[in-house]
Structure formats: structure tokens, C-alpha cells
């Protein structure tokens, strides 16, 4: 019987969202239209329209060693062209952001190729070849995985995920990379992810309302959301894993 991944336990809405985002057969809902140029500006690795700097010559031009693995694995476009490895990093507010670091890493591993994600408590970074990164970043920003107010694109000085929100509903950002344009109701980035001012504002759309956020969040939250303890199936599985790893830690032969 072919292996069919289950992605995760749980009977709550949060658990269902977690599975949904991880499942590559689920097409992520597209909510906004950040262009390629916008993504390049937000990340700040190269000027829009500039050629991709390279770390090595294209694979077609260099002698590859005779390696069975290299024959099996098709290189990504970025690897083929010899692009540099670059990153995008996100911070997600605990107040019902659609994604959170572990979820991002899981879903990226299921959906994308040639990536190196880094998961931390308050931020998640993903590294890969530059032109692949731009493609992936566009998907991460334009779809239901992102909310302009509760998720931030932050390369450095990421603090804010666990703090109260500002009066206008934006997550705290020491560098205030994005601001809410009150007239238009749209969030616009005025700095790139490392905090350098942008020549041109990048609009990333309207913040989603609370109802949408609570329906799409992947974060358990006992204040106003789904409490972790209310998902009995989730608790059962976490306890099972905890118990097994403890026992096997002591008696690996059993």
C-alpha cells in the first residue's frame, strides 16, 4: 500500500488548517498580487531587473563528477544557473497569524524543493537559490499563508511575535518596516526586510479581519481562539510521542 501522509493529528480547526497548508495537493488561496519586483524590493538582495549574481558557473558549463545521486535529482532552476543562496525571514504574531514558524517549515518542506529552512520560536527563515527563493517568496506572500498586519517580513530585528498589537492592529516592529495606510486601509512596506528605506513603497494589501484570521490560523490560543487543551486528539498524540521517546531513551531495545 502506498504511503499516504497524514500531516498531523487533531480534530480542531487549527489542526485542520495545519494539515491543509502542509498538504501539497491543497491549492493555497491567492489573496493578493505582489509582483516579482515587489518581492525583490522587499528582500533587498539585488536591484530589481539586475542579473542574478552567481556563486558558481552554470551546471551545464562545468564538469559534474560521475555521481548516481546527481543523476537521480533534477537540479532546481537556481541551482542549474549557479545562483547565490539567499533568504527570506518571517515573523508571525501569536494573535492568530495564519502561519507560525514550525508550520512554515513543514509546509515548505512538503511544497518546495532545494530549501534550507531554519525554525526559531519567533521567526522562521528559509534559504535557497535566489531565483527559486523569489518564486517561493511570492507564494508565501500572495497566498493565505500571509497576513499583512500579523505577519512581518523581517531579516533582522524580528522581535514582536509575542507582544500585544499596536492600536491599529499591526504587530510591533522595532524598525517599522511596514505601516498601515489608514486612508486606503492598505499595509505598505517602506523599508526592506533588513530595515533599509525603500525608494518605492510596496503595497501588500489589506489586513484580514479577525473572523478570517481565526478561521485560518494555525496557532492554538486560549484567549479568544482554540485552546490547545481543547483538542483531545492533539494532546493524546503529543503525550504518546513524549512517552515513547522517554521510554526508548532509557531502553532502546524494547
Amino acid at each position: 500500500m502506498a504511503y499516504k501522509p497524514q500531516y498531523g493529528p487533531g480534530s480542531s480547526k487549527v489542526a485542520e488548517n495545519r494539515r491543509k497548508y502542509m498538504d501539497p495537493s491543497h491549492k493555497l488561496e491567492k489573496l493578493r498580487d505582489a509582483t516579482d519586483e515587489d518581492i525583490v524590493l522587499l528582500m533587498g538582495h539585488r536591484a530589481p531587473g539586475a542579473a542574478y549574481p552567481t556563486a558558481h558557473p552554470p551546471l551545464a558549463e562545468q564538469q559534474e563528477p560521475d555521481c548516481p545521486i546527481r543523476k537521480m535529482v533534477t537540479p532546481t532552476d537556481g541551482a542549474k544557473a549557479g545562483d547565490r543562496v539567499r533568504y527570506i525571514q518571517f515573523t508571525d504574531s501569536m494573535f492568530f497569524a495564519p502561519s507560525q514558524p514550525y508550520e512554515r517549515t513543514y509546509l515548505e518542506c512538503y511544497r518546495f524543493r532545494g530549501i534550507d529552512p531554519g525554525t526559531l520560536s519567533g521567526r522562521q527563515i528559509v534559504e535557497c537559490r535566489e531565483r527559486d527563493l523569489e518564486k517561493y517568496a511570492k507564494e508565501l506572500v500572495n497566498t493565505e499563508l500571509f497576513d499583512p498586519a500579523r505577519c512581518g517580513i523581517r531579516g533582522a530585528t524580528v522581535h514582536g511575535h509575542s507582544l500585544r498589537l499596536a492600536e491599529d492592529g499591526m504587530m510591533f516592529d522595532m524598525l517599522q518596516r511596514c505601516i498601515l495606510d489608514k486612508k486606503a486601509g492598505v499595509v505598505k512596506y517602506v523599508k526592506n526586510q533588513i530595515g533599509e528605506p525603500l525608494d518605492k513603497e510596496v503595497k501588500v494589501g489589506k489586513p484580514m479581519d479577525d473572523k478570517w484570521l481565526k478561521a485560518h490560523t494555525t496557532i492554538f490560543h486560549s484567549l479568544g481562539g482554540v485552546a490547545y487543551r481543547d483538542d483531545a486528539e492533539y494532546i493524546e498524540w503529543v503525550q504518546r510521542i513524549h512517552s515513547l521517546r522517554t521510554k526508548y531513551g532509557f531502553m532502546p531495545m524494547e
Binding site: 531579516g155 533582522a156 530585528t157 522595532m174 524598525l175 517599522q176 505601516i179 533588513i194 530595515g195 533599509e196 528605506p197
Partner: peptide
């Protein structure tokens, strides 16, 4: 800006 590649640049904040 306290950290990162833009360290030392002014940090206008509303």
C-alpha cells in the same frame, strides 16, 4: 538600526 547588515543606519519610527 541595532542589528543586521543595515546596522547604524537611522531608524525613523512613527
Amino acid at each position: 538600526v541595532p542589528h543586521g547588515p543595515a546596522r547604524g543606519k537611522p531608524n525613523p519610527h512613527p
